[in-house]
C-alpha cells in the first residue's frame, strides 16, 4: 500500500475543498460536543446518585447513661440485620469535634459540658429499606428520644428517594437523547461527505477509467474522512472538557455541598477506562472513515 501517496492525496483534497472540510469538521464537532456532554452529565448523575445512596443513613442518638456494654450489644444487634451494610459509632467527643468543625471552635470553647449525644450511624444496602429499618429503633430503650416523640432516630427519607427517582428518570432520558443524537450525527456526517464526493464524482470516474482499483480510489477518501472526524472530535472533546472543568470549578466555589465530577481528558480508569479525548477521537475518526466509505459506495459500481 502506498501510504505516502494516499496520505498526500487526502491532505491535498482536504486543503482544496476546505469549505467542505470546515462543514464536515463543524458537523463532527457539534455531534461530539453533544455526545461528550451526555457522557459528562451522565457520569456526574451516576456519581451523584451513588453518593446520595451512600448517604442514606440513619442516625440513632443514644442516651448519655448507656453503658459501653449496652452500646456494643446494640451495635451487634443492628449489624445482624440483613438490610444493614455498616454501623458506625460516633462518640460524644467525635460529635463535638464534628460540630466544632462546622461552626468554629469559639462557639463551643466555653461549654462546661459536652451537650451532644453519642450516636450510631446505620447504613443500609438499599435506600428503599430505610423506613423499615428505622422503625425498629423508635422504641428501643437505648435511644435518646425527647419524651413523647421519636426524634432520637433521624434520616432523610422522602426527599432522598424522590431525588433518586428523578435522577433515574433523567438518566433514562439522556440515554434516549444519546441514541437520537448518535443517529443524527451519522446522518449528518454521511450527508456532508456525500456532498463533497458528489462534487468529485467525475474525478472518481476518471480514476476508474485509468485503471484504479476500488480500494486505490477509496483509501484517500477514507483517510480524509478519518482526519476530518478526528479534528472535529478533538475540538469537541477539548471544548467539553474545558466547560466541564469551568462549571465544576464554579460549583466548588459557590455551592458548598455540590461537587461536580470533572471527566478526565485522557484516562479515567474505571468502568469505561478511556477519558474524553480518546473516546471521542476514536469515535469521530471511525465515523468519518465509515462515512467516507459509505458515501463513495454508489460511485464505485459501474
Amino acid at each position: 500500500m502506498r501510504v505516502g501517496f494516499f496520505l498526500s492525496e487526502a491532505l491535498g483534497s482536504l486543503r482544496r475543498n476546505w469549505v467542505m472540510t470546515m462543514a464536515a469538521v463543524i458537523t463532527v464537532f457539534i455531534s461530539t460536543v453533544i455526545l461528550g456532554g451526555v457522557l459528562v452529565l451522565g457520569e456526574n448523575l451516576n456519581r451523584g446518585a451513588t453518593s446520595l445512596e451512600n448517604r442514606v443513613m440513619i442516625e440513632v442518638f443514644i442516651k448519655d447513661e448507656t453503658t459501653p456494654q449496652q452500646q456494643q450489644e446494640f451495635q451487634q444487634r443492628v449489624l445482624a440485620m440483613p438490610e444493614v451494610k455498616e454501623v458506625k459509632f460516633v462518640s460524644k467527643d467525635e460529635a463535638l469535634r464534628r460540630f466544632q468543625e462546622t461552626v468554629g471552635s469559639y462557639v463551643t470553647k466555653n461549654l462546661p459540658t459536652n451537650p451532644l449525644p453519642a450516636s450510631f450511624e446505620v447504613f443500609v444496602n438499599d435506600a428503599d429499606q430505610v423506613d423499615t429499618v428505622a422503625a425498629r429503633f423508635y422504641d428501643d430503650p437505648i435511644v435518646d428520644n425527647t419524651p413523647g416523640t421519636q426524634d432520637g432516630v433521624q434520616y432523610a427519607a422522602k426527599t432522598v428517594r424522590r431525588m433518586l427517582d428523578t435522577i433515574d428518570l433523567v438518566r433514562w432520558g439522556m440515554w434516549a437523547a444519546t441514541i437520537v443524537f448518535a443517529v443524527a450525527a451519522v446522518l449528518l456526517i454521511s450527508t456532508t461527505v456525500r456532498l463533497s464526493i458528489f462534487a468529485r464524482r467525475r474525478e472518481v470516474e476518471i480514476m476508474r477509467l485509468v485503471g484504479a482499483t476500488n480500494w486505490f480510489i477509496r483509501w484517500p477518501f477514507v483517510i480524509e474522512g478519518f482526519i476530518t472526524g478526528l479534528i472535529g472530535a478533538i475540538l469537541g472533546a477539548l471544548s467539553v472538557y474545558v466547560v466541564n472543568w469551568a462549571v465544576a470549578d464554579w460549583l466548588r466555589n459557590s455551592v458548598d455541598y455540590l461537587e461536580a465530577y470533572v471527566y478526565p481528558l485522557w484516562w479515567q480508569g474505571e468502568g469505561w477506562p478511556l477519558g474524553l479525548l480518546p473516546t471521542l477521537a476514536v469515535l469521530g475518526g471511525v465515523l468519518g472513515a465509515v462515512g467516507g466509505m459509505v458515501a463513495l459506495r454508489r460511485y464505485l459500481r459501474t
Partner: peptide, 10 residues
C-alpha cells in the same frame, strides 16, 4: 467488476 481495473491498466 473486480477484474476491470486490471484490464484498463493494460
Amino acid at each position: 467488476q473486480r477484474k476491470v481495473p486490471l484490464l484498463r491498466r493494460n
